[in-house]
Design a protein around this nucleic acid. Structure first.
Length: 532
RNA sequence: GACCGCUUAGCUCAGCUGGUAGAGCAACUGACUUUUAAUCAGUAGGCCGAGGGUUCGAAUCCCUCAGCGGUCACCA
């Protein structure tokens, strides 16, 4: 890249560039000894990946995209799984939960997989994480805490922490309540007898031998090495340990972890390292501005978003000012999709400097794939779907061709995906509100007439001919000119189960003449009204 | 108790390297259509929470206050 480009990027004020510059500053503008700048995200595998997981990885990727723009130093993303953590309670909706019940407090990676598909419960959830991330095409390296501990990768850092045991302990204590302070230890020994991760006071530390002494569950004084996976660090020091051992250059976290990360930063200093750059993103709220909690079931899940909109739009949402709390509910989806689309559209015509202020730049790493092109907004598609009674993608495409003759599912695959989401939206939000009624005698006569007229139409009849038949059927069955509106409304209510609808001629053309005849006959037979 | 965020049009929000207030939706008007909806074009709408300060100039920077909300203090 040219120096001009770099300069423009160095002055860019968007948050990912602010963050990227902080990384560059941390590493002093030169490649670290490990050869790359390390970006980390953390994951707790006692649950499944969720919208927060996505947000963190997406946002970290945005910072990396910015970093690559201002520096030639390689950048690497590690998604770290805290899979040696002890299982504290049994998650809901898990088969064979008695397996988990009988293994509480043991490291996740030694608990048998209740799904029976992986080496352990931890491995199972790690695999789910990877599947999840791979779906969106994230570029990352997976790292297991258990492996880091067992392989000795953390040994040096653990011994270091043992030498500084008291300092580390003192760093954490101010953050804790009185009760917890009494028993707190940065080291959690794993009982050689039960295999459980124990939260017990440490009786002795032996830095020279590299061991600690504690009282096991049966009361026996036990001495074990802190290295090799015999001891796990409590989560706050564990975070610091990881930062120190891996030399993490960047990690963001939620505001809920703010004080914890400050403590972790202090611990890294105690160990002689330097804490990573990073900021704290705010949490998501529901439409009333209240905190999203799983037990309340408010807010929006990842699955819900992805049912009605593409993941790119969620990534766009994640781009928007992460430092302030945002309401995450259904109504923000269409807007997010359309704003994403307008950024995509704007990119090719923008100057370099403007492009760096374009959200799409961060989502796609600077280059927008041609496949993302769409000439139609999502809001329009949603309106089209409900106005035109369109419950299948092909019909919707028929309408799209009227607006934009050049677009096809093949040359606009992103639009084709949007069509699918619009149909889904129609099925879930429009269809259930339909209420069909039976026609009165005049309506019935007119509709029967309409069906006959349609049957009599020549095969190559055009839209105008169809529209004319609709009017004629009304006029010749007792509707005066000023009553035609009622005739159309009757069609919508009896045939489509709604009070409004598309121009009926257009509807027949797209829905199909034969299909329309069937629709009329079914309605007159009471198939819809009965069902409703 | 400690720390943080928000307050801008009827609604949801953008604008935060200080330079005559913006978008979407809603409303209203018009065009088009042998109904409506949709679509397109346009109009209107704001003491930018309150008070003070810095400045030639503040929605924007600083201080104080108010209202709302959040996080941590048991676990991670």
């Amino acid at each position: 890249m040219s120096n001009d480009d770099k300069n423009t990027a160095m002055n860019c004020k968007t948050w990912p560039f602010e963050e990227a510059r902080a990384v560059l500053k941390r590493i002093g503008n030169t490649a670290p000894d490990k050869g790359y700048a390390l970006f980390e995200t953390g994951y707790g595998p006692s649950g499944l990946p969720h919208i927060g997981t996505f947000g963190e990885v997406a946002r970290t990727t945005m910072v990396m995209n910015a970093f690559r723009k201002i520096s030639d130093i390689p950048a690497k993303l590690i998604c770290f799984s805290d899979d040696m953590d002890g299982l504290r309670k049994v998650p809901l909706n898990i088969p064979n939960s008695e397996i988990l019940e009988s293994n509480l407090e043991k490291p996740l990676t030694v608990i048998p997989d209740p799904f029976g598909t992986h080496e352990s419960f931890g491995h199972h959830n790690n695999a789910r994480l990877r599947d999840f991330l791979d779906t969106f095409g994230f570029d990352y390296e997976f790292l297991s805490s258990t492996e880091c501990y067992k392989s000795g990768r953390f040994d040096e850092a653990l011994l270091n922490m043992l030498r500084n045991y008291e300092k580390v302990r003192q760093a954490v204590l101010p953050l804790l309540g009185e009760e917890r302070q009494k028993t707190y230890s940065p080291f959690l020994p794993i009982s050689p007898k039960s295999g459980k991760v124990l939260q017990v006071p440490i009786l002795e530390t032996n830095p020279d031998a590299g061991t600690i002494v504690f009282e096991d569950e049966d009361g026996e004084k036990t001495e074990i090495p802190v290295t090799g996976g015999h001891v796990k660090a409590q989560w706050r020091p564990d975070w610091a340990l990881r930062w120190y051992a891996l030399d993490v250059d960047y990690e963001m976290a939620g505001v809920d972890l703010k004080s914890a990360s400050q403590i972790a930063g202090k611990i890294v200093s105690i160990l002689g390292g330097k804490k990573p750059a990073g900021f704290h993103y705010d949490l998501f709220l529901d439409e009333k501005g209240e905190k999203i909690s799983k037990s309340k079931g408010n807010g929006l899940t990842m699955e819900e978003w992805l049912t009605y909109a593409p993941h790119e739009s969620l990534a766009y949402y994640m781009y928007l000012r992460p430092s302030s709390a945002k309401k995450l509910h259904f109504d923000v989806i269409p807007k997010a999709v359309d704003e994403y689309i307008s950024f995509i559209k704007a990119m090719p015509t923008q100057e370099e400097e403007k492009q760096l202020q374009n959200a799409a730049w961060y989502i796609h790493g600077g280059t927008i794939p041609n496949s993302q092109y769409t000439p139609i907004s999502f809001a329009l598609l949603l309106n089209l779907a409900s106005a035109a009674n369109t419950d299948n993608a092909e019909t919707l495409w028929g309408y799209i061709r009227k607006h934009k003759p050049d677009a096809t599912p093949e040359n606009a695959p992103f639009l084709d995906r949007l069509v699918g989401y619009a149909v889904k939206y129609y099925e879930d939000f429009v269809l259930p509100t339909k209420t069909y009624r039976m026609p009165d005698d005049r309506e019935r006569a007119a509709m029967e007439d309409l069906a006959k007229r349609l049957e009599a139409l020549p095969k190559d009849a055009d839209l105008d001919a169809m529209q004319t038949e609709v009017f004629s059927a009304g006029k010749e069955n007792g509707y005066e000119k000023n009553e035609l509106r009622e005739w159309f409304q009757a069609l919508y209510q009896v045939l489509l189960g709604q009070n409004q609808g598309p121009r009926f001629g257009s509807f027949i053309e797209l829905y199909g003449v034969q299909e329309s005849i069937t629709l009329i006959r079914d309605a007159l037979d009471g198939k819809f009204a009965k069902a409703a």
